[in-house]
Every structure is written in C-alpha cells, then in structure tokens.
C-alpha cells in the first residue's frame, strides 16, 4: 500500500480547503451531503488499515461503527443526562475498540474464507443484539439527543458546525493513519500482507500484530460511528449490518486498494454516484450494484490508480 506523496497530500489539503469553504458558497443540503461523505470516508479509512495494510477482509467492521454510534445513546441512558462530546467521543472509541479486542482473538484464529465467514457471523451477532433486544431502543432505530458541544449550536448553524467538525476528525484520522504506516508497526503490517510466513519466520508475533491492527481499526470505526450519531442524531440497527461493511469495502475498491487515501476518494465518489442515482431513478440498489460490477470487472486499481 502506498501513501500519497507530497503532491498527493497537497492535493488532499486543497480538497479539504474546498470543503472547509463550503459554508461560504454551498447550501445546507450539500454541506450535510459532504458530512455524510466524510463520515463514510472515516469509516472506510479505518477498514483500509485491515484490508489495504494487513490484507484482512473483515465483514464485522460495520458492527464497530454502529457500536460507536449506539454508545452515544447508551451513555445518555446510563447517565440520565446529555453527555458532553469530550466524554461521549472517548466512550464510543473505547466501546468499539473493546468489542474488537473481544472478537478479534476468535476471528483471527482463522484465515481466508473462514475469516470472512466468522467476521460476518460475529458482526451479525452484534446486529441482532440491537435488532432483537430492547437494549438499543428497538428494530426501527431511535432519534437520540446529540452530545453537547462547548457552546449551544443554533439549528441554522448545525450544517456548518458539523461539516467543519467532521472535516477536522477526518483530517486527524487520515494524518494518524499516515503516521502509523510510517512506524515499524505499519511496516510490519505491510509485511504480513505481503508474506505472512516470512514475517513469522523473522520472529514477528504475527497474531499480536494482527490483533493490534484489528483493535485500532475497530476503535477508529467507533470514532466514525460517534460522528455519525452526532451529525444525524439518529441510530438504527442497520448501522451495524454487514451490508455497511460491504459498502465500505466497495469504497476501498473504488478508491484504490493500494493507496491509503483511496478510501477518501472512494467515499466521495460513491456518495456522489448515489446522489446522482437518487435524482435519476428510484432504484438505489440497481445503481449501487451496477457500480460494484463496473468496479470489480473494470477498475482494478481504483480511482487512485488511474494516473498510473
């Protein structure tokens, strides 16, 4: 997996500036759309640490995203009052990371197809926990109270504030992963993807490295889930379902599996395509299915690989 070079990062920075300037020229609706794309980008970026870096294709990832979102709701239930964001955010990250640390040791005993199947089953187990029990507020989801920010945000300012918040968290997530991939740990993960046996023969504790990647990725998915709950003020069991994981995999494939910044491109591309599709046809799934077919049949290196 390659990280964007100086020029690539400059381009990403310019794109971030363009998003940051949206309050000056874009409508509230388009700012909300950009927020949706950025949350999807955070989620897909966290999955890229498993898929692109370590070579683990997980279908449980949406469960950690959903858990991060539900943590906001459950925290409010437990406290009896609306938590501040400085409390709800770490709680979401910890809850998702903890779930990943519990599931990881079981799922990582397997590899290949078995890993796909076990992550699918464990992810759906968490989905059923929120779908079938009254724990999270029921099958259809619930409207939740947003965690309070430092100041009270009037309704009219919400799109702007959440746009900038999401941009900041996305930028931090990307920067953090970018730095992580430059450490010895990041290189070891790339080594596992390239040749697991060799890494083991060289004396690396492959199992522990994989688990650490699984937990970090899960925690970051929880962070994305927290931002989704904060932005939408709504959580539902669908957030945890494996279809969401597959959608994130699609963003990774669309953006380019070989590039760290690929998922960001993929998330924006898919949100854009879905929005266009929404204008043209009622059949959302038809659009998404056709995009996936085109991507797996034609676009082998993703959008990030087109220039190569």
């Amino acid at each position: 997996m390659t990280s964007a070079g100086l020029r690539g990062n400059l381009l990403l920075g310019l794109a971030a500036l363009a998003v940051a300037s949206m309050p000056l020229w874009a409508s509230a609706y388009h700012m909300q759309l950009a927020s949706t794309a950025m949350i999807a980008a955070m989620f897909a970026l966290s999955l890229q640490l498993l898929v692109g870096a370590t070579g683990l294709v997980s279908l449980a990832h949406a469960a950690f995203f959903g858990l991060g979102a539900y943590a906001v709701h459950l925290l409010k239930q437990a406290m009896g009052e609306t938590p501040v964001v400085f409390l709800s955010l770490p709680v979401s990250v910890l809850a998702a990371g903890l779930a990943a640390a519990l599931i990881g040791p079981f799922a990582l005993r397997t590899r290949g197809f078995y890993f796909l199947m076990t992550t699918l089953a464990f992810g759906q187990m968490l989905f059923f926990l929120f779908h079938d029990t009254p724990l999270g507020g029921g099958t259809d989801g619930v409207f939740i109270q947003r965690p309070s920010l430092i100041w009270a945000v009037p309704r009219a300012q919400r799109p702007t504030v959440f746009l900038l918040l999401n941009l900041a968290v996305l930028a931090l997530t990307y920067a953090g992963l970018w730095a992580l991939m430059r450490t010895l740990f990041g290189h070891a993960l790339l080594g596992i993807r390239a040749n697991e046996h060799r890494m083991r023969a060289m004396g690396h504790n492959v199992q522990r490295l994989k688990l650490l990647a699984f937990v970090i990725a899960g925690a970051l998915a929880g962070l994305a889930g927290h931002m989704a709950a904060l932005t939408d003020a709504f959580v539902s069991p669908e957030l945890l379902g494996w279809h969401r994981s597959a959608e994130a995999l699609l963003m990774i494939l669309l953006g380019g599996i070989g590039a760290l910044h690929g998922p960001i491109l993929g998330a924006f591309a898919l949100t854009f395509i879905q929005e266009i599709g929404h204008l043209v046809t009622e059949r959302q799934k038809l659009v998404e299915g056709a995009v996936i077919l085109a991507a797996v049949l034609l676009l082998r290196h993703g959008l990030a690989g087109i220039r190569r």
Partner: peptide, 23 residues
C-alpha cells in the same frame, strides 16, 4: 481473484437480485 473482489461481486448480485425481485 482476491477475496475482496469475490465479496463485492456477490454483494452486487444480492443488490441486483433484490432489485429484480422488486421490479
């Protein structure tokens, strides 16, 4: 092909089958 491609291909089939059923 890689697992990722197989997962996405068959996920696309799910979506298309559901749309075909709806249509």
């Amino acid at each position: 092909r890689e697992h990722l491609d197989q997962v996405l291909l068959t996920f696309a089939l799910i979506l298309l089958f559901e749309e075909a059923r709806a249509a």
